[in-house]
Design a protein around this nucleic acid. Structure first.
Lengths: 343, 343
DNA sequence: TTGTAGGCGTTATCAG
DNA sequence: CTGATAACGCCTACAA
């Protein structure tokens, strides 16, 4: 077992000084061709690679970025993560991934842990609990310390930083509009129980679309489900006690579950009832019938977030003063039509 | 914007030496109560937290573990990742996640990048390309440097290290046996095209089960699909030109796709044809009909892998010599029966 | 009780 | 052309 070799060891072996070795390995022309070759050959032989930690300490940058997502099993976050990872990779950055599990406390702890030098910046989506509590002191503190932060999807207006979102309101509006144009009259909304920024915006789009087309808002047609687990009793009661001809769901899991229940109740999709869901993931594609779905372009979102963050990190290095400016990028969601609606 | 404060700054402000500050913050009884209190108060006021990078350099451990998975959108890997992250979190470790994208080169590059001091150990599943090339020099080199490594799921016998797998062979055998006991005679296998260790073992289980029950192995009943993308033409031809009454698939995506095609061809599930898939993910649960599925317990797998790794990391710290021993943990897969088979 | 010095691995500056 | 020194932030054995 040969431990990693250091400059010091090379220097000792070759009977030169550490700085000579360092320079030779960087092809500095201060060093003679002879010594340079000798040192490089030796270094190669022993697979010398500079120690990242020492470099980080010296340069005050780690080339690590911290990503905190509420839930990794949720397809949307996974795709965003993928986008982040891919872009970061091309720029030579590593991604440290933390899952907040929708918990405020885990979010805070993870952030504090990473903020102590382990990373150069954060990309995150707020946990449900954080949004409910409306407590963002940990984010503000981080920013205060000069650490770049990019929020995506689950954002808040209370924190001033770079952000990436999709046009939830418009996307939802368009989806409902489409349903109405297809002749649907009783359009239900299945959304999350807890207060999530995005769900709220999607609900607003739904309200507005109904209103603009002179359809009455019927509170009975709105079902609020717990975000994580559900035993389907609420959903079944919902379908049993209401008649509707279309459903908009704020995510694809809700949509696919709802379709199953509707089918179990003998309804034909899309003849009797149409479905549209957010999150155009694998479930939408492979559902039976395939689900018409609003693509949130998670991968693109992650890529943009990573790009914004890395730009800010690398800018910080150069100029020092210069007034900070923050951007909010809005990605346009697109409707992917499949079998659960008629076109 | 207040940058993070260091021991040095505290020392200067309070007009004491750095080591006094360091000791005071650790409640060393070398330091007088007075100074200790003064220093601690000041440190608290400025939110002093030791710099992780400096600690890593000093202690030669980072409390980071590197995880390399072939594909994060694949549900199974996601759940393993979750298990790793959760366990690591409880032990105060961070997880640096890299995606190899099934590419040998990305796997090598990522490993080399991380191996230079960024992490204390690796957990990984081999990329498809790595398994195909049978080239593991990068793993061997890593181990050689004394870096702990745990392989999971996609493993190889050519590398000696800790491993976690499920009993693929037996699981597959049991699944086929069940199908046979249900009266199925023409049982197909849908597996991956590229050589993957796990697929191979599952195929072996399939062969053995057929043989033990005196069913002939019909090569026409085996469909090999590309791992990542597929336009379904091959699958459709497969279903068109063969008649079968059951299908075993090496993952749930293949299974759900296959079910759709069978249904499109007018077959009734499970009456005309039964399906069993590996990977008991969300797709299996929400498919229509719900898919009988072999649970691989990804989360548990991740947890065990993380536990093995962290134990090795922390053992390395203490004792130095002591002969190394490596374990292979085998997790028992379980069959979750749903609507796609009759019980 | 407090401080000094050396070291973790690297680089940059300056002196020889 | 080469080497000594200081610094990044922290810890600790040893000295005062």
């Amino acid at each position: 077992m040969k431990k990693k070799i250091t400059l010091k060891q090379i220097a000792r072996e070759l009977d030169v000084s550490i700085s000579t070795v360092s320079k030779a390995l960087k092809n500095s022309k201060e060093i003679s061709k002879d010594t340079t070759e000798k040192i490089q050959a030796f270094a190669k032989l022993y697979h010398y690679k500079p120690n990242n930690i020492a470099l980080s300490l010296k340069n005050r940058r780690t080339r690590n970025i911290g990503v905190i997502i509420p839930d990794i099993v949720h397809h949307f976050f996974t795709t965003v993560f993928r986008g982040i990872e891919q872009y970061a990779d091309t720029k030579g950055y590593n991604v440290i991934a933390c899952v907040s599990d929708e918990s405020f406390e885990k979010e805070v702890i993870n952030m504090e842990l990473l903020a102590n030098g382990s990373i150069d910046g954060f990309i995150m989506a707020l946990s449900a609990e954080t949004q409910r509590k409306n407590d963002f002191h940990h984010l503000i503190e981080i920013i205060d310390q000069g650490m770049p932060l990019v929020l995506f999807d689950r954002i808040t207006d209370d924190v001033i930083c770079d952000k990436v979102v999709i046009n939830d309101f418009e996307a939802s509006y368009m989806a409902v509009k489409k349903l109405i144009e297809n002749g649907r009259k009783r359009i239900a909304l299945i959304t999350t129980e807890s207060y999530l920024n995005v769900s709220e915006k999607r609900a607003q789009g739904y309200y507005k679309a109904l209103k603009d087309h002179n359809l009455e808002l019927d509170e009975n047609l709105i079902l609020r489900l717990p975000y994580q687990f559900e035993d389907e009793t609420k959903s079944e009661a919902f379908f049993a006690s209401n008649n509707m001809d279309a459903v908009l769901c704020v995510n694809e899991i809700f949509a696919v579950r709802a379709m199953r229940i509707a089918q179990r109740n003998g309804m034909k999709i899309p003849d009797d009832i149409a479905f549209i869901g957010f999150t155009d993931g694998i479930l939408s594609k492979l559902a039976n019938p395939a689900l018409t779905s609003i693509a949130q372009h998670g991968e693109q979102m992650g890529e943009i977030a990573a790009k914004m963050l890395i730009e800010k990190i690398e800018r910080d290095d150069e100029i020092e003063t210069e007034e900070e400016t923050f951007r909010t990028e809005v990605i346009k969601a697109t409707l992917i039509e499949r079998e659960s609606t008629n076109n």
